[in-house]
């Protein structure tokens, strides 16, 4: 499981830019960004190299921030790769709340980010021979 930063944003011109600038000024490097939007607001989901620093910087700038735990799984680089991943979960009756992909620099495989509310998910994927990406591969764990 890895930490994903979720930010509540009003639909306003320039607001997403302010968010990105805040992260940039804090020296946070983003790996992936996904916006889910409605008519009046959106939720921005971010995978980055320093989630705790990102959270601190955004909170200091009065953004509404929360941290969600998501699964990152490596997706085979061939047609039907993602379908295999999702079918593995579907067969076990595990529902995916949302999903998006990113590619790590220098890597041939894509990483799929999955939000599921089922503890079995990671084990199910591993039993199908899929590789779960560990937090330490994406960001340094914050000293605590």
């Amino acid at each position: 499981m890895i930490d994903q930063i979720s930010v509540f944003l009003e639909n306003e011109p320039g607001r997403l830019a302010q968010l990105c600038r805040t992260l940039g000024d804090a020296g946070v490097n983003m790996r992936a960004l996904m916006v889910a939007d409605t008519e009046s607001f959106g939720v921005v989901r971010i995978i980055c190299d320093r989630p705790q620093a990102a959270r601190d910087a955004l909170e200091a700038a009065s953004f509404g921030v929360s941290v969600a735990r998501v699964i990152a799984v490596e997706v085979p680089d061939r047609p039907g790769g993602l379908a295999d991943v999702l079918e593995a979960l579907g067969e076990e009756g595990i529902n995916v709340e949302y999903a998006y992909c990113f590619v790590e620099p220098g890597s041939r495989a894509a990483v799929d980010v999955l939000k599921v509310d089922d503890e079995r998910a990671a084990a199910v994927l591993e039993s199908k021979g899929l590789r779960i990406v560990r937090a330490g591969e994406i960001y340094e764990p914050d000293p605590s």
Partner: peptide, 15 residues
């Protein structure tokens, strides 16, 4: 305002 300690992750919950 949404409460600052709300888990903002899912659009469905906010709606």
């Amino acid at each position: 305002e949404v409460a600052p300690d709300l888990a903002f992750d899912e659009v469905r919950e906010l709606e």
